[in-house]
Simulated scan of single mutants.
Amino acid sequence: MKQENNIESKIDNIEKMNKKLLLSLEFLRDNINEKKSLEAEETNLKIIKTLIYILDEIDNINKFAIDTGNQELVNNINGVQKNIKKNLIGINVEEIPTANEIFDNKIHKCVQVIESSNEDKFKIVNVIKKGYKYNGNVIRPAEVIATK
């Protein structure tokens, strides 16, 4: 009888230790998965920022094409921009709206203010650098000129 109680006690202790080990393993697995997820997100953000830099360069080329009156180049660049932006939307990257918008310091960065009696107060009148969101979070605010 005493030996049976001793064996049952040992089995009970083994079961308790097994449960603790399983919980520890689950905790470790969750931490590893979370770390992998954070590392993947950091990598995604680096890639997205690189793509945004490329879009900035394409915008500069587009401005040059417009200034020089090269309509064929403008048309080609517009097609490239449209394809890139479509693909960025597919990975939850979106351009921050600025056209006919009122300045919002959560998504815009005002780099210049101008006086205007024709426009609404704080209306964005020009974009210096486009801004972008990733998964709804601002990764770069739009740099704008707004009215006073």
Results as ranks from 00 to 15, higher is better:
107 I>R: 01
130 K>Q: 06
111 V>L: 09
59 D>H: 07
58 I>E: 02
140 R>D: 08
42 E>Y: 07
147 T>C: 03
131 G>T: 04
147 T>L: 02
37 S>E: 15
48 I>N: 03
55 L>M: 07
15 E>R: 02
12 D>A: 13
14 I>P: 12
76 N>W: 00
142 A>P: 13
87 N>F: 12
41 E>R: 14
120 D>R: 09
94 E>W: 01
32 I>C: 04
53 Y>W: 05
39 E>P: 00
45 L>F: 09
27 F>Y: 11
137 N>V: 11
51 L>S: 07
78 N>I: 00
52 I>S: 02
125 V>G: 08
7 I>N: 11
139 I>E: 08
20 K>M: 06
58 I>R: 01
40 A>N: 14
2 K>N: 13
4 E>F: 11
17 M>R: 04
54 I>V: 09
107 I>M: 05
87 N>E: 14
58 I>Q: 02
20 K>Y: 05
103 F>C: 10
80 V>M: 03
142 A>T: 10
70 N>C: 08
84 I>M: 03
78 N>Q: 09
130 K>H: 12
109 K>M: 12
122 F>M: 08
95 E>F: 05
139 I>V: 12
21 L>I: 12
13 N>Y: 01
143 E>L: 09
52 I>T: 04
33 N>T: 14
53 Y>M: 06
103 F>G: 03
96 I>R: 03
36 K>S: 09
54 I>T: 02
4 E>W: 09
46 K>Y: 12
81 Q>I: 07
80 V>P: 01
144 V>N: 09
140 R>E: 12
